[in-house]
Nucleic acid binder design. Structure first.
Lengths: 116, 116
DNA sequence: CTTGACCCTCACATTGGTGTGAGGGTTTAC
DNA sequence: GTAAACCCTCACACCAATGTGAGGGTCAAG
Protein backbone atom coordinates (compact mmCIF):
# COMPACT_ATOMS: atom_id res chain seq x y z
CA UNK A 1 0.00 0.00 0.00
CA UNK A 2 1.06 3.59 -0.42
CA UNK A 3 1.72 6.11 2.27
CA UNK A 4 -1.72 7.70 2.19
CA UNK A 5 -3.50 4.46 2.79
CA UNK A 6 -1.14 3.50 5.58
CA UNK A 7 -1.73 6.86 7.19
CA UNK A 8 -5.45 6.45 7.02
CA UNK A 9 -5.36 2.95 8.43
CA UNK A 10 -3.14 3.81 11.34
CA UNK A 11 -4.23 7.30 12.23
CA UNK A 12 -0.69 8.58 11.82
CA UNK A 13 -0.03 11.56 9.57
CA UNK A 14 1.78 11.05 6.31
CA UNK A 15 4.50 13.25 7.67
CA UNK A 16 4.99 11.01 10.68
CA UNK A 17 5.15 7.87 8.60
CA UNK A 18 7.82 9.35 6.39
CA UNK A 19 9.68 10.35 9.49
CA UNK A 20 9.50 6.83 10.92
CA UNK A 21 10.83 5.44 7.68
CA UNK A 22 13.68 7.91 7.58
CA UNK A 23 14.50 7.03 11.17
CA UNK A 24 14.78 3.38 10.26
CA UNK A 25 11.73 2.26 12.18
CA UNK A 26 9.79 1.28 9.13
CA UNK A 27 10.88 -0.37 5.89
CA UNK A 28 9.46 0.82 2.60
CA UNK A 29 10.19 -0.42 -0.88
CA UNK A 30 10.21 2.11 -3.69
CA UNK A 31 8.24 1.90 -6.89
CA UNK A 32 9.94 3.02 -10.10
CA UNK A 33 8.20 6.38 -9.79
CA UNK A 34 9.66 6.94 -6.35
CA UNK A 35 6.49 6.18 -4.40
CA UNK A 36 6.87 4.29 -1.13
CA UNK A 37 5.30 0.85 -1.06
CA UNK A 38 4.46 -0.69 2.31
CA UNK A 39 3.62 -4.28 3.08
CA UNK A 40 0.58 -5.23 5.15
CA UNK A 41 2.71 -5.67 8.27
CA UNK A 42 3.35 -1.95 8.25
CA UNK A 43 -0.04 -1.24 9.78
CA UNK A 44 0.68 -3.24 12.90
CA UNK A 45 4.15 -1.83 13.05
CA UNK A 46 3.09 1.78 12.86
CA UNK A 47 0.52 1.16 15.57
CA UNK A 48 3.17 -0.35 17.79
CA UNK A 49 5.49 2.58 17.16
CA UNK A 50 2.81 5.07 18.07
CA UNK A 51 1.88 3.23 21.21
CA UNK A 52 5.44 3.31 22.37
CA UNK A 53 5.94 6.95 21.46
CA UNK A 54 2.87 7.78 23.51
CA UNK A 55 4.33 5.76 26.33
CA UNK A 56 7.35 8.00 26.41
CA UNK A 57 9.81 5.99 24.36
CA UNK A 58 12.06 7.82 21.99
CA UNK A 59 12.48 6.95 18.33
CA UNK A 60 16.04 5.95 19.15
CA UNK A 61 14.88 3.65 21.91
CA UNK A 62 12.18 2.14 19.78
CA UNK A 63 14.80 1.53 17.14
CA UNK A 64 16.79 -0.54 19.59
CA UNK A 65 13.67 -2.63 20.19
CA UNK A 66 12.59 -2.79 16.61
CA UNK A 67 13.10 -6.51 16.26
CA UNK A 68 10.42 -6.98 18.92
CA UNK A 69 7.86 -4.71 17.36
CA UNK A 70 6.21 -7.12 14.99
CA UNK A 71 5.35 -10.70 15.74
CA UNK A 72 6.83 -11.77 12.46
CA UNK A 73 10.33 -10.61 13.24
CA UNK A 74 12.72 -13.51 13.08
CA UNK A 75 15.91 -11.70 12.24
CA UNK A 76 17.46 -12.64 15.55
CA UNK A 77 20.47 -10.34 15.82
CA UNK A 78 21.60 -12.31 18.77
CA UNK A 79 24.50 -11.63 21.05
CA UNK A 80 25.16 -10.87 24.66
CA UNK A 81 25.06 -7.12 24.31
CA UNK A 82 21.64 -7.30 22.78
CA UNK A 83 20.46 -9.36 25.70
CA UNK A 84 21.79 -6.81 28.16
CA UNK A 85 20.05 -4.04 26.28
CA UNK A 86 16.81 -5.96 26.33
CA UNK A 87 17.07 -6.53 30.03
CA UNK A 88 17.58 -2.84 30.55
CA UNK A 89 14.52 -2.08 28.51
CA UNK A 90 12.59 -4.62 30.48
CA UNK A 91 13.48 -2.86 33.70
CA UNK A 92 12.36 0.42 32.24
CA UNK A 93 9.10 -1.03 31.05
CA UNK A 94 8.45 -2.54 34.46
CA UNK A 95 9.11 0.73 36.20
CA UNK A 96 6.80 2.49 33.84
CA UNK A 97 4.09 -0.08 34.38
CA UNK A 98 4.38 0.30 38.13
CA UNK A 99 4.06 4.07 37.82
CA UNK A 100 1.02 3.70 35.66
CA UNK A 101 -0.56 1.13 37.95
CA UNK A 102 -0.11 3.47 40.87
CA UNK A 103 -1.65 6.35 39.01
CA UNK A 104 -4.42 4.14 37.79
CA UNK A 105 -5.36 3.20 41.29
CA UNK A 106 -5.38 6.79 42.43
CA UNK A 107 -7.44 7.92 39.51
CA UNK A 108 -10.01 5.23 40.06
CA UNK A 109 -10.10 6.06 43.75
CA UNK A 110 -10.93 9.59 42.75
CA UNK A 111 -13.71 8.41 40.54
CA UNK A 112 -15.12 6.31 43.31
CA UNK A 113 -14.97 9.25 45.68
CA UNK A 114 -17.00 11.45 43.35
CA UNK A 115 -20.46 11.09 44.80
CA UNK A 116 -21.70 14.62 44.68
CA UNK B 1 13.58 22.23 52.39
CA UNK B 2 15.10 24.38 49.68
CA UNK B 3 15.29 23.67 46.00
CA UNK B 4 18.78 22.21 46.02
CA UNK B 5 17.91 19.60 48.60
CA UNK B 6 14.72 18.69 46.81
CA UNK B 7 16.66 18.30 43.60
CA UNK B 8 19.19 16.05 45.23
CA UNK B 9 16.55 13.89 46.86
CA UNK B 10 14.49 13.40 43.75
CA UNK B 11 17.11 13.28 41.03
CA UNK B 12 15.44 16.13 39.19
CA UNK B 13 17.50 19.15 38.18
CA UNK B 14 16.92 22.43 39.95
CA UNK B 15 15.81 23.82 36.64
CA UNK B 16 13.14 21.17 36.26
CA UNK B 17 11.79 21.73 39.74
CA UNK B 18 11.45 25.43 39.15
CA UNK B 19 9.70 24.63 35.92
CA UNK B 20 7.25 22.31 37.66
CA UNK B 21 6.49 25.00 40.19
CA UNK B 22 5.92 27.61 37.53
CA UNK B 23 3.64 25.20 35.71
CA UNK B 24 1.54 24.79 38.83
CA UNK B 25 2.46 21.19 39.46
CA UNK B 26 4.27 21.91 42.66
CA UNK B 27 3.53 24.35 45.46
CA UNK B 28 6.34 26.29 47.07
CA UNK B 29 6.20 28.84 49.86
CA UNK B 30 8.64 31.71 49.72
CA UNK B 31 11.00 32.79 52.46
CA UNK B 32 11.44 36.53 53.05
CA UNK B 33 14.64 36.41 51.00
CA UNK B 34 12.78 34.97 48.02
CA UNK B 35 14.02 31.40 48.43
CA UNK B 36 11.54 28.62 47.70
CA UNK B 37 10.58 26.48 50.65
CA UNK B 38 9.17 23.01 50.00
CA UNK B 39 7.37 20.73 52.42
CA UNK B 40 8.33 17.07 52.82
CA UNK B 41 5.49 15.94 50.54
CA UNK B 42 7.29 17.59 47.67
CA UNK B 43 9.68 14.69 47.33
CA UNK B 44 6.94 12.19 46.65
CA UNK B 45 5.21 14.63 44.41
CA UNK B 46 8.24 15.33 42.25
CA UNK B 47 8.87 11.61 41.91
CA UNK B 48 5.29 11.09 40.78
CA UNK B 49 5.60 13.92 38.27
CA UNK B 50 8.75 12.50 36.81
CA UNK B 51 7.33 9.02 36.56
CA UNK B 52 4.41 10.35 34.61
CA UNK B 53 6.53 12.52 32.37
CA UNK B 54 8.63 9.47 31.52
CA UNK B 55 5.44 7.59 30.76
CA UNK B 56 4.58 10.13 28.12
CA UNK B 57 2.23 12.41 30.02
CA UNK B 58 2.45 16.10 29.38
CA UNK B 59 2.80 18.73 32.06
CA UNK B 60 -0.66 19.91 31.12
CA UNK B 61 -2.11 16.46 31.49
CA UNK B 62 -0.39 15.87 34.77
CA UNK B 63 -1.82 19.16 35.93
CA UNK B 64 -5.30 17.90 35.27
CA UNK B 65 -4.54 14.90 37.44
CA UNK B 66 -2.71 16.78 40.11
CA UNK B 67 -5.20 16.04 42.83
CA UNK B 68 -4.34 12.35 42.42
CA UNK B 69 -0.61 12.79 42.57
CA UNK B 70 -0.10 12.71 46.28
CA UNK B 71 -1.89 10.35 48.61
CA UNK B 72 -2.56 13.23 50.97
CA UNK B 73 -4.71 15.13 48.52
CA UNK B 74 -8.15 15.61 49.96
CA UNK B 75 -9.20 18.70 48.10
CA UNK B 76 -11.86 16.81 46.19
CA UNK B 77 -12.82 19.21 43.43
CA UNK B 78 -15.70 16.98 42.63
CA UNK B 79 -18.11 17.31 39.78
CA UNK B 80 -19.22 15.37 36.77
CA UNK B 81 -16.74 16.90 34.37
CA UNK B 82 -13.89 15.93 36.60
CA UNK B 83 -15.20 12.40 36.69
CA UNK B 84 -15.40 12.28 32.92
CA UNK B 85 -11.87 13.54 32.64
CA UNK B 86 -10.68 10.91 35.07
CA UNK B 87 -12.42 8.18 33.13
CA UNK B 88 -10.77 9.36 29.99
CA UNK B 89 -7.40 9.22 31.65
CA UNK B 90 -8.16 5.79 32.93
CA UNK B 91 -8.85 4.55 29.44
CA UNK B 92 -5.61 6.07 28.24
CA UNK B 93 -3.68 4.51 31.07
CA UNK B 94 -5.17 1.12 30.34
CA UNK B 95 -4.28 1.35 26.69
CA UNK B 96 -0.79 2.33 27.60
CA UNK B 97 -0.45 -0.54 30.02
CA UNK B 98 -1.61 -2.99 27.39
CA UNK B 99 0.95 -1.63 24.94
CA UNK B 100 3.69 -1.99 27.47
CA UNK B 101 2.61 -5.46 28.50
CA UNK B 102 2.71 -6.55 24.88
CA UNK B 103 6.13 -5.11 24.37
CA UNK B 104 7.30 -6.61 27.61
CA UNK B 105 6.32 -10.05 26.48
CA UNK B 106 8.05 -9.66 23.16
CA UNK B 107 11.20 -8.38 24.74
CA UNK B 108 11.36 -11.23 27.18
CA UNK B 109 10.69 -13.69 24.38
CA UNK B 110 13.70 -12.21 22.65
CA UNK B 111 15.82 -12.67 25.69
CA UNK B 112 14.73 -16.26 26.01
CA UNK B 113 15.57 -16.85 22.37
CA UNK B 114 19.12 -15.59 22.77
CA UNK B 115 21.01 -18.83 23.24
CA UNK B 116 24.00 -18.25 21.05
C1' DC C 1 34.95 41.84 55.04
C1' DT C 2 35.66 38.41 51.94
C1' DT C 3 34.96 33.80 50.08
C1' DG C 4 32.14 30.00 48.74
C1' DA C 5 27.95 27.81 48.46
C1' DC C 6 23.69 28.57 48.01
C1' DC C 7 19.53 31.06 45.89
C1' DC C 8 16.95 34.35 42.48
C1' DT C 9 15.13 35.90 37.55
C1' DC C 10 15.55 36.32 32.69
C1' DA C 11 16.35 34.70 28.36
C1' DC C 12 18.37 32.27 24.71
C1' DA C 13 19.55 27.37 22.94
C1' DT C 14 18.55 22.53 22.12
C1' DT C 15 16.13 18.15 21.18
C1' DG C 16 12.44 15.16 19.32
C1' DG C 17 8.24 14.61 16.99
C1' DT C 18 5.16 17.18 13.92
C1' DG C 19 2.88 20.73 11.03
C1' DT C 20 3.01 23.13 6.92
C1' DG C 21 4.13 25.14 2.60
C1' DA C 22 6.82 25.55 -1.67
C1' DG C 23 7.95 23.54 -5.90
C1' DG C 24 7.37 19.73 -8.62
C1' DG C 25 6.31 14.81 -10.64
C1' DT C 26 2.59 10.77 -11.75
C1' DT C 27 -1.71 8.63 -12.68
C1' DT C 28 -6.64 8.30 -13.49
C1' DA C 29 -10.79 10.17 -15.58
C1' DC C 30 -13.12 13.19 -18.22
C1' DG D 1 -4.84 17.83 -22.59
C1' DT D 2 -6.29 19.19 -18.37
C1' DA D 3 -8.11 18.59 -13.73
C1' DA D 4 -7.99 16.08 -9.41
C1' DA D 5 -5.87 13.30 -6.37
C1' DC D 6 -2.14 11.27 -5.32
C1' DC D 7 3.07 11.17 -4.44
C1' DC D 8 8.05 13.25 -3.86
C1' DT D 9 11.92 16.25 -1.38
C1' DC D 10 13.37 20.18 1.16
C1' DA D 11 13.21 23.38 4.57
C1' DC D 12 11.45 26.38 7.88
C1' DA D 13 8.50 26.58 12.22
C1' DC D 14 6.47 24.95 16.43
C1' DC D 15 5.86 22.92 21.16
C1' DA D 16 7.33 20.91 25.49
C1' DA D 17 10.92 19.92 28.71
C1' DT D 18 15.38 20.97 29.82
C1' DG D 19 20.23 23.00 29.63
C1' DT D 20 22.94 26.89 30.29
C1' DG D 21 24.75 31.35 31.10
C1' DA D 22 24.46 36.19 32.59
C1' DG D 23 23.85 39.25 36.24
C1' DG D 24 22.88 39.55 40.81
C1' DG D 25 21.23 38.62 45.87
C1' DT D 26 21.94 35.90 50.83
C1' DC D 27 24.32 33.79 54.41
C1' DA D 28 27.54 31.16 57.22
C1' DA D 29 32.53 30.41 58.13
C1' DG D 30 36.96 32.06 58.25
Amino acid sequence: MRVGELAERTGASIRSIRYYEQAGLLAAARKPNGYREFGPNAVERVRAIRGLLESGFTVGEILSLSSCLTATADDCDCCGQTAALYREKLAKIDLQMRTLAQLRERVSERIAALEC
